[in-house]
Write a protein that binds this DNA or RNA. Structure first.
Lengths: 225, 225
DNA sequence: CCCAAATTTGGGATATCTGTCAATTGTGCC
DNA sequence: GGCACAATTGACAGATATCCCAAATTTGGG
């Protein structure tokens, strides 16, 4: 596996069309992350992917379509991995802390994906809404368990998400180090009404970091180009 | 005063060059707010300002220069008005609540300016840093007064700012109503360690709203076109 | 009121972008 | 190995962008 992106790696054992599509998506991720959606042209995506302009239009109708495809894929993969990593954890305080910390570490493990995700969440309402829905259950659980003493509504959830995204953005800018996830998670717990010493204790524990990978490949293949 | 923007209003009694420049800046604010910096062309700014393309380049070297000018002016004006509205308030809890609530209400009172401000803070590091510096003093004051029980560092301040900006963005999207400022301020105070009942009490009080206006004009002029 | 200086205009040279299509090349199935 | 079909190429038309500049217009001090 060379420096190719995650999509291309995943598609490396598929047909040519899928591989080209994956390279276009990897190129789009990089450029979206660096320049934003609006500033990225179809031409540039094609050039970065090493194909000619016309090829792009075989795979995507226009820039919006590839943007949606990329945003959806990133969002789904991050949520899926987070979900898998949290099965069996019942305590809402633990879940909240794990979700925030792993989300940040996961997205920061692939800066291009992380930056594209931040931009996508700010740009695409659908993506934001779907990721926010994921949060609601955990926060409500904390209220049901009597651990959070705050009303769970859209504003609370949105604010919680803003804190997480802000810390992720700071990490991607290089302003914060790996401790950012634990720190912001502690602040979130305090906000929710968890006693300060419990918040500190939970966030002081190490969590094993995840690294971003796509849905696992079929069997024992996954050879490199 | 017609529907002209704030810059043009301010410049209405100045020379022609200043007025044209102001109209370009108003146009840029509107377009940046609607489409973002990257997606806005110089052509479009000039058209929206009612001048011909070439005129733009008399006043600004390129799009980045007008973006910086607009971001700086918006930031300075918002900070100046906030500052003026808080003289004489000593209690850090009150100051924190007032700052958040007035910031949000102020920026929401002129949605174009608000949206441009949100985008600018996310785009221009200088602007973010200067607005964040403004926060630090108030948060540190709260620690000194024994009211906040959290360490004041870059991450805390950045997180506090993310919460405020997130709530502002939600208001501009129409997701939240005028109560958003008070709600998020209460969450911030809880995060900082203010007891929940005191946070609720402070944020339950009404604050007189400010409306955005630029530095006052010289004397009794300010005629409308 | 007049004129020099300041300002704006309109259009042009050049570059890039989008989206399409006929022609070419490559793939994989039989 | 060869063939039918899928995928890619490269070029192009039309739109729009940037940046520049000589000519025309407007401004404001004398």
């Amino acid at each position: 596996m060379t420096v190719q992106g995650l999509f291309a790696t995943e598609a490396s054992n598929l047909g040519k069309s899928a591989r080209t599509r994956a390279r276009l998506m990897d190129a789009a991720v990089q450029l979206f992350a660096r320049d934003g959606f609006e500033a990225t042209s179809v031409n540039e995506i094609a050039r970065q992917a090493g194909v000619v302009n016309g090829t792009f239009y075989v795979h995507f109708r226009d820039r919006d379509e590839i943007a949606a495809a990329v945003a959806l894929a990133i969002g789904q993969n991050v949520v899926r991995q987070l979900d898998e990593a949290m099965v069996g954890i019942e305590d809402a305080v633990e879940r909240s802390s794990l979700a925030t910390r792993r989300f940040i570490d996961l997205a920061a493990s692939q800066p291009d994906w992380g930056a594209a995700l931040v931009r996508a969440v700010l740009t695409f309402r659908d993506l934001r809404d779907s990721m926010i829905a994921y949060l609601r259950a955990d926060l409500q659980r904390g209220v049901d368990q009597g651990l959070f003493t705050v009303a769970i509504d859209d504003l609370l959830i949105d604010t919680f998400a803003s804190m997480t995204l802000g810390a992720l953005a700071g990490r991607l800018r290089g302003d914060f180090g790996p401790e950012a996830g634990a720190r912001v998670s502690e602040l979130q717990l305090r906000m929710l009404g968890v006693p300060a010493d419990r918040a500190r204790e939970v966030c002081g524990r190490d969590v094993p970091a995840l690294t971003l990978e796509l849905a696992p490949l079929p069997k024992g293949l996954a050879k490199a180009g």
